[in-house]
Amino acid sequence: MTSQEPAIEVRGLRKTYHRAFRKGGNEALRGMDLTVPEGSAFGLIGPNGAGKTTFIKSILGIVQPTEGSIRVLGGSPEDPRIRARIGYLPERLHLPGTWTAPAFLATVTRLKGLPVDPAGNLRLLERVGLSDAVGRRIGGYSKGMRQRLGLAAALVGTPSLLVLDEPTDGIDPMGRMEVRRILQDEVQRGTTLFLNSHLLAETERVCDRVAILAGGRVVREGRLEDLARGGVRWLVRFAPGANTEALVTAGFVRGVAEGQYVVEAEDPAALNGALDRARAAGALMVELRRDGTDLESVLMGTVEAAA
């Protein structure tokens, strides 16, 4: 694989689930195009039923597409040599309850065609914070511990591509921070991270690129800062007692909350000019932020526009 080749490249991907004795079918993906650059931390977000899980299963060869082409790490996901370089954590990983974590990891290692490395597996368990639970049966693990073990299984064999479906589901806030640190370490190491999480804050913190999926299509995709750029609108809050008329004259529009105003400014000079006029009118600024900068706003706006 050349360094320019994307980690995942999907063109015109369609998937229709057919049911016996029923006409037509359920179209989960409707001509999806997506490119995930190698070494990036890529987040897939979208509402329920958008086709996120079907897409993930498609790129792993678990679901066979109705139409379109899929290339993962420069090859077909059907090729076991390609899948050997992928670490996957499914949304609801079902683990054998009577096994211990080292036994489970040893089996995963063997099925990945790698020599069993008990010391390496113990290091992995330590890395995901399960070193104290090594001797316990998986059946006694909490949901968060199972999720950590699933992450450890995905990390077996230092994969080139990590595909994680809701990796922090059930993990407490401290644990999420640890998982986030592990994922960031992996990305720094050069691993491509493909993340599907309904926790947008999580995606925002880990990923540098995001695609929004709605109705089986990618409706928006790009670098996080480009998507989250709120445009020219800024939210400003002034201390009580500000002269509303003077502020309106200075170009501010009254917002919904007490003391909140909206101003449109194309660049920093225009923004500071407006703020100077407000200050000249005796208004004291206490808060300034770009309107609609979080991923949630981007998602809501994009999905509503696509509907």
Partner: peptide
């Protein structure tokens, strides 16, 4: 079963 078959099919086995 869901959650196990996906994991197994994503491993490098036919």
């Amino acid at each position: 079963s869901p959650g196990r078959i996906e994991h197994l099919l994503a491993l490098p086995i036919q």
